[in-house]
Design a binder for these strands. Structure first.
Lengths: 243, 243
DNA sequence: GTATTGATTTCGGTC
DNA sequence: GACCGAAGTCAATAC
């Protein structure tokens, strides 16, 4: 693929011209972008309608579709990967149609005017490397268990219980079973409920003589979460994810 | 704004040329797209690094930034609205920098080659109209309370409790207090925990003589959620959101 | 396939 | 600004 053939663009093209470009681009697995005045209709898990306006439309070779306005991080409409994209010209207007089954969902973009169209041949061999996730927090604690509490001994990670997998399962200095739930950011009542379910499931599972301790590890908790922790007899340890 | 001035594009431009275009576009509140071979570095709530590859970069006038690969519905890197975008040329390479404070986050895209650049003047007066949401489900039940249970009487929506706002608060045919939690799709244990917190908070709040009934209304529940409902003494009513 | 949970979740509403 | 919960959440992983 030469540099000159990696990108094809059209400015204010006729509907037939851009339709041809888009159809060929989809066919060869290129990424397509369109910009222009359009309306958008979605029907599937929910349904939505969007009147005329200027939007940026992306069709990815994996079957994803994105419709972006000038505002917001999230697309105003979209289709997930795995959809089939098609393009047509009806009454002189370009129509982009994307659909999937299971669940049945359709997205239709009807262009009043296409201001710009482009097809990009994409090559991206790289994987994104992220740090500062909950998994990193877990590794940090496994390397230095005293961050949770002096004498804490991790015995397993992702230990299965009837209520789901526990982040870190271990015991304290006195040998009592400890369940640790990790969150990389400030938490609300939901995380406390999650931890409580794990503790309850383990107490039943182990027929424990003594109570199982539940420790929530996070940078901080909200007021309601703190009250819920107290009510449930659960504990909290403040720990920031590594920068 | 005439049609001809609404879109500016460049193919395989020099770094200085595209830098100028991007700077002017940001300045006048236009939406910018770039496509080319680049690396991406992010640092903030987490941190990430992405090696060289072909990506599509969008800079929105509201300060959002998106970096898309050829795969996935989600951007591989991004910045939320409210960020400041800047562009520079360093050692002949185009660099796009986006940052915000609170939390401090930076995104840097360094282009090895810019294959295509475009600036779009966007006008979008329309609001998205969505149906099939949880709010629609609530309206449906308020119009026909028997969908929950014969004799159910809604008394309030979004009623505040110490555990948060209850979707629908009412009473059954015998006068017992009922808390209804609505979900538009199949639910897991988290929604049961949420309903349980509301029920507990209301029982304490009302000093109720009799137990408060908690009813989860959703299309269906998972096994664990069903078990948790039984354990907590909560009920489930199957109801699909209107198509 | 379903189920469960994390996410740089984002987003909207409310206090 | 913090908090709380919805979302057409998406995406990864385990089963």
């Amino acid at each position: 693929m030469t540099a000159d053939s990696a990108v094809e663009t059209l400015s204010y093209p006729e509907a037939d011209t851009v339709s041809d470009l888009v159809a060929r681009a989809i066919d060869r697995g290129a990424m397509v972008t369109l910009f222009g005045r359009c309306t958008v209709e979605y029907d599937g898990r929910a349904a939505s309608s969007l009147g005329p306006g200027d939007r940026h439309v992306t069709l990815k070779p994996d079957g994803a579709a994105l419709v972006h306005t000038d505002e917001g991080q999230q697309p105003v409409n979209w289709q997930p990967p795995g959809c089939d994209h098609a393009v047509a010209v009806t009454d002189g207007a370009l129509e982009v149609h994307s659909e999937r089954s299971n669940p049945a969902e359709t997205l239709d973009v009807t262009f009043e005017t296409v201001a710009h169209a482009a097809a990009f041949d994409v090559s991206d061999p790289e994987e994104l490397a992220v740090t500062g996730t909950e998994a990193d927090l877990k590794d940090r604690i496994l390397a230095e268990p005293d961050l949770v509490e002096a004498g804490f001994t991790p015995l397993a990670t992702e230990r299965e219980t009837p209520a789901g997998a526990v982040d870190i399962y271990g015991e304290d200095a006195t040998g009592r079973t400890v369940v640790v739930e990790l969150k990389r950011r400030r938490v609300g009542p939901d995380a406390v409920g999650q931890l409580d379910r794990y503790v309850g499931a383990l107490e039943r599972d182990l027929h424990a003589q003594t109570e199982v301790r539940g420790i929530l590890v996070a940078p901080s908790v909200t007021d309601r979460a703190r009250q819920l922790l107290a009510k449930k007899g659960l504990e909290f340890v403040s720990l920031e994810p590594t920068q």
